[in-house]
Amino acid sequence: MKVTIEDVVLPSDQCEEIVKAGESGRVILGPGLRKEIDGVFIVKAGVLKKRSPNTYWVESYQKRYVPSRSENVIGVVVQKAGDIFRVDIGGSCTASLSYLSFEGATKKNRPAVKIGDVVYGKMLNASKDMEPELVCVDSDGKKNYMGVLEDGFMFKCSLNLIRKILNPKCPLIASLKNEWPFEMAAGMNGRIWIKANSMRETIAVGNAILGSEYASNEEIKSMCNNIASILAGHNS
């Protein structure tokens, strides 16, 4: 079936607009779109989105993480195997994390990473046929946001929720950031790690994030106000 931007689309649908754009210039096909010999096909069920000037993708509900390059993810160390750690990132297989890819790590000076630790890293390598590879340093050898996440609380959610709260237009973080001190890490693999000064505050942040999945911007704002006032009442 022929579809246009912002339509609900199903696999095997085709979009003529993308083909037309492809004739005149470069087009970036995001997740859910595939170029075949006779046109551009949709391969996921969802909503077809466009970002000017030339990026198209399908916004679909998904809980299973498919590793892809240079995404930031949260993983749990499950095994130490000689030179590498095996890290569960929620994909079809574990990712490997070299002990040398931490800031300041050398062969003699190994990083203090234990089994069960939560790490925030970047996907270095993710292909269909190979084990994904994770690193905890950037190209300058600095840790730069990444590394082991101490204490705190980790929970899972859908991949859409991560993208929703990290969107600059989403009011969730803007309305929480001035209420009480907290820290968070959101991995593109559908995991969120949060840390606050008390258990009550941690739970409040977690509930605010999970509650905003199907809420509109106004609802998120009022929910955050609500949570903040309840928390303020308990603290005083």
């Binding site: 492809g22 004739e23 210039g25 470069r26 087009v27 970036i28 096909l29 995001g30 997740p31 779109l33 595939r34 170029k35 551009v40 989105k49 970002r51 990026t55 993708w57 498919v66 892809s68 390059r69 240079s70 995404e71 930031n72 925030y120 946001y145 990444m146 991560i162 993208r163 990290l166 969107n167 600059p168 973080i173 929480l176 950031k177 001035n178 009480w180 001190p181 907290f182 820290e183 968070m184 890490a185 959101a186 991995g187 593109m188 840390k195 606050a196 000064n197």
Partner: peptide, 30 residues
């Protein structure tokens, strides 16, 4: 050399914030 570039990640489609955030002095480094 086709005009189509396939990109398997959402991070290049949407303009997302950095995933690691800290507020009100919880983690001064971040």
């Amino acid at each position: 050399t086709g005009n189509y570039i396939s990109e398997p990640s959402f991070i290049y489609c949407e303009d997302l914030l950095e995933g690691r955030l800290s507020f009100k002095g919880m983690n001064p480094e971040i």
